[in-house]
Simulated scan of single mutants.
Amino acid sequence: MAKLLYSATMSVDGFIAGPGGDMSWMTEYLGPNPAVDELIPRIGALLVGARTFGGDDPYRDTPQEGEAFGGGWSGPQFVLTHHAPEVPVPDVTFVGDLETGVNAAKAAAGERYVNVLGADIARQCLAAGVLDEIFISVAPVLLGDGVRLFDQPGGRTVKLERLSLPAAPEATNVWLRVVG
């Protein structure tokens, strides 16, 4: 059965997007990353938050704009939203609640990962007890403000177990398992 993996690139001070959801900061840190290259074929489906789906794209104004992992991945995407667009989007299914989205994405992913994209969706998955792993590429930059990797003031402590800590020239990758 598929596992849910939250993956993101994060600044050293804990932000995955700048103020207003700005992703342009990430562009210079999207270079070669062997750990990400190895992960991509292991992803069977995406579970994406509405803000992430409709938000800023670090590949803006390039041929990779609008493509998952800059065009390195294609497949079924499930977007959690209360306001699905009237015009269908190829390979995208819009779902209205987390449980439906998780179940549909897992069914589509088969034995591969469901990759969770979006801080709020990751937080919801963690709170629901369905998030299995976290893969973070830490970029060598301090953003100072923006969207945090996990933001839940007053939240509970969540124990994690390190699975690996590979380094790439542009980032340090941290792969963790959620244990409680």
Rank of each mutant, 00 (worst) to 15 (best):
Y29S: 11
G21W: 09
G118P: 08
A119I: 12
K106M: 11
V158H: 15
Y6W: 04
G55Q: 09
V158A: 09
V116I: 15
S74H: 14
D120Q: 15
N33M: 10
V116G: 02
V130W: 02
A35G: 02
L30W: 08
R51A: 15
G154W: 02
I134N: 09
A171T: 15
E111I: 01
I43D: 04
A168Y: 00
G71F: 06
V87G: 00
A35F: 08
I136S: 04
F53E: 12
P41Y: 11
G146N: 00
L131D: 08
A109T: 07
D61E: 14
Q152Y: 05
G49M: 03
Y6C: 11
L98K: 11
A109K: 04
G118C: 13
P58Q: 06
H83M: 10
G71H: 08
A84H: 03
L165N: 13
A127R: 15
V36N: 12
G20H: 00
F53W: 14
L176H: 05
Y29N: 08
G21E: 01
K159P: 03
L5Q: 12
V138N: 08
R112T: 10
G72Q: 13
L4G: 03
V158D: 05
V95E: 04
S24V: 01
F53Y: 14
A105Y: 06
V95Y: 02
L117E: 15
F135Y: 14
V141I: 15
E111G: 13
L98N: 04
R177L: 04
V174C: 11
S24G: 12
I16T: 05
P169K: 11
V95P: 01
T157Q: 13
P166L: 03
I40M: 09
R112W: 04
G14M: 02
T172Y: 04
N115G: 03
T52G: 04
L149Q: 08
E86T: 15
P19S: 12
V178C: 04
E133R: 13
F53Q: 06
K3N: 12
V36A: 14
N173T: 15
D56C: 07
V138D: 07
L143M: 12
I121N: 00
V12R: 11
G55S: 13
D13R: 10
V130I: 08
M10W: 04
V87R: 15
M23C: 00
D56I: 00
I134E: 07
L39E: 03
G54W: 03
S74N: 15
P76W: 01
A109E: 09
L163A: 12
